[in-house]
């Protein structure tokens, strides 16, 4: 059940010059949020700003989000400091299915590395086999990377030169076989990863993003094209916030 909570900042770090990593105190959201869900955060601008949950500490009753400064709203939120607070609605949307498989490959890019981080925390704590591939533009953009991850950069100044699919191709066949792929990142990246997974006959789930307003499914502005269930229709406009944000990549019309 999602509710509006006033949440206090308990810690904040800048991951690079335009990305803040903020930990909020909210035992209710911390207890409920599953990987892939998001929260909608109040700022001085008119609409709230949605962020995927990046990490949860249930004992401490806190959760983290990553805030990349894009405009006024994110700039203000990224400037929050310990002791500041704001209203946060959450947890929202449908998370990833992390029960049906024992073996996962996680693929993250851009701000998608935040939900991927929470997925990795959960899956590794459950003792499941997890490989992670993360892609960045260049070495200066690398955030939330871990030594055990496969790292790629477009510029080639760190890790494998290339994109996430080049990273995926570097995995051994035994790592790939029988896995489920979970991917969060920019649309072109998710599209490419989806087609890579399809070529290996792997299940693949992606987290779609669209300009959002309410975050709870009442305004219908954040729709994406999903293959129609009913015959005679080519597609349906589904709400990223409420019907997603996680969708089976086979259902997505890219």
């Amino acid at each position: 059940m999602s509710k509006d909570y006033f949440c206090e900042v308990v810690s904040k770090t800048m991951l690079n010059e335009d990305t803040a990593y903020i930990e909020f105190l909210c035992p209710e959201i911390a207890a409920e949020a599953v990987p892939g869900q998001f929260v909608n955060v109040t700022c001085f601008n008119f609409l709230r700003r949605p962020f995927g949950v990046a990490s949860v500490d249930r004992d401490a009753g806190t959760f983290k989000v990553g805030i990349k400064i894009i405009g006024e709203g994110t700039e203000e939120l990224a400037s929050m400091e310990e002791g500041d607070g704001t209203w946060i609605l959450g947890p929202l949307g449908n998370g990833f299915d992390i029960e049906s498989s024992d073996k996962y490959i996680l693929v993250g890019g851009g701000t998608g590395v935040f939900p991927i981080n929470y997925l990795y925390e959960e899956l590794s704590s459950q003792g499941k086999a997890v490989k992670v591939v993360q892609g960045f533009r260049d070495a200066s953009q690398i955030i939330l990377n871990k030594p055990e991850y496969v790292l790629t950069t477009d510029a080639g100044d760190a890790g494998i030169k290339g994109n996430c699919c080049d990273g995926l191709n570097s995995l051994s066949p035994s790592d790939v076989e029988g896995t489920t792929v979970l991917c969060v990142g920019p649309m072109p990246m998710m599209r490419a990863v989806s087609s890579w997974a399809s070529s290996k006959s792997l299940d693949c789930y992606v987290s779609l993003e669209q300009r959002m307003a309410c975050g709870i499914g009442i305004c219908l502005v954040c729709v994406c094209k999903i293959k129609a269930e009913e015959q005679g229709q080519e597609f349906e406009h589904k709400r990223c916030c409420k019907d997603g944000p996680v969708f089976d990549s086979k259902e997505v019309i890219w």
């Binding site: 601008n45 008119f46 609409l47 669209q210 300009r211 959002m212 307003a213 305004c219 219908l220 502005v221 954040c222 729709v223 597609f235 349906e236 406009h237």
Partner: peptide, 23 residues
């Protein structure tokens, strides 16, 4: 009705624009 395609919301000062298109 499937409604309009593409970006349907634009935030502005003291409000927002929508073009859902009666989905």
């Amino acid at each position: 009705r499937a409604g309009n395609e593409g970006v349907r919301v634009a935030e502005c000062k003291a409000g927002m624009l929508n073009s859902v298109g009666l989905q």
